[in-house]
Amino acid sequence: MFKKAERKQAKLRLALAGPSGSGKTYSALLLAMGLGGRIAVIDTEHGSASLYADIADFDVLELHAPYAPERYVDAITSAEQAGYDVLIIDSYSHEWTGSGGCLEANEQLAHQKFRGNTWAAWNETTPRHRKLTDKILTSSLHIICTMRSKTETVQGEGKKIFKLGMKSEQRDGTDYEFTVVLDLTHDGHTAMASKDRTKLFDQPELISIETGERLLAWLNSGVSPEDRAKELLIDALADIVNAKDIPSLHSAFNAAKVIAHGFDDLIDQVVIAKDKRKHELTPQEQSA
């Protein structure tokens, strides 16, 4: 059934793209500090994140080649299990263009199995990359991904030379997966949104801790999962109360449990309603 659209509370999915030296790691840490909680960093840049240990309190996992998507998935799972709140993947580009990443792995697979046909090899490589994308999208953490951009040098006014970030080094269409994509400039380190579902970035800005705080406020301004569960439970509890027999009660109870899963107080309401209706139905079942 179609239903009225509403924005629920969500976890951040943000990408920072820019050429080398544009401040991606530094900006990601500032954003993470604004989001709050424990910060973890997957560092594929040979320890570069640790250079900023004086500005932020975070834990790091240094990931070296091969940069297979499965290794990223395992690292994200480890961060979730360890109870972190924010995860920075620095850099997401290595999974695509790095040693052992998807491009290299697909080339090797094509020669080993598909007689050099790289298009055929993507039938096996694409699902591997997709599993990582799905992991990022469904994670319980706020996730910030940095991505390298190919650099183009241009001459501005007064013959001043600028470095501009062009296409990100990741699979085509990757930008669509994120809530916000910010492109960083090499000179000035300012960020401009190339994609922004939050509508918070209508002007270029210098990333700060306050930027992360603004994002957190936006993320938390939607309908909470518990409030949504309470709304859905109104009809589910009515089904329990109006159950005509024990089998119907069991069905209604199981449906309500799915809705209330993860919220102990709501589970208690469901159990109480089920026990009450079962007590009412038992004499009827016995007399029948």
Rank of each mutant, 00 (worst) to 15 (best):
S99K: 10
W119P: 06
F114S: 09
N254D: 14
W218R: 00
L237C: 07
T125A: 14
E80G: 13
F178W: 10
S139P: 05
K3D: 13
G212F: 00
D187S: 08
V154E: 14
L63E: 04
G222K: 01
F263I: 04
D245S: 14
G98S: 08
N123A: 14
R7W: 04
V154D: 13
F58H: 02
V270K: 00
P204K: 05
Q286R: 14
K163E: 11
H111D: 14
D43S: 12
E80C: 12
K3I: 13
I259A: 02
R171F: 09
L281F: 09
A121D: 05
G98N: 02
K244H: 10
L109T: 07
L137E: 15
H64K: 15
M192L: 12
R13A: 03
K8I: 09
K195Q: 05
P19Y: 01
I161H: 12
E95A: 14
A5N: 13
D227T: 08
G83V: 05
H64C: 14
K160R: 12
N106A: 14
V180H: 04
D59R: 13
R148D: 07
L266R: 00
S99E: 14
A5K: 13
G83Y: 03
D275P: 03
R148I: 01
E62N: 12
A229N: 05
T44E: 01
P66A: 07
T133P: 06
D245M: 12
K113S: 11
I136Q: 02
K199C: 11
W96E: 06
N242Q: 14
N117C: 12
T97K: 10
D265R: 15
I88M: 01
D90R: 04
E107Q: 15
E226T: 03
R214F: 01
H261C: 12
D43F: 01
A68F: 12
E177R: 09
L233A: 04
A40P: 08
K167Y: 13
G188T: 08
R38H: 13
W119H: 15
L109K: 06
K24H: 08
E169Y: 06
G173P: 02
S251H: 13
L141Y: 00
F58W: 07
G47K: 02
G173L: 03
H94A: 09
A121T: 03
C102F: 05
N117M: 11
D85P: 07
G36V: 02
H186W: 10
A10F: 02
I272N: 15
G156W: 03
A243Q: 05
I209K: 09
G34S: 09
E45L: 00
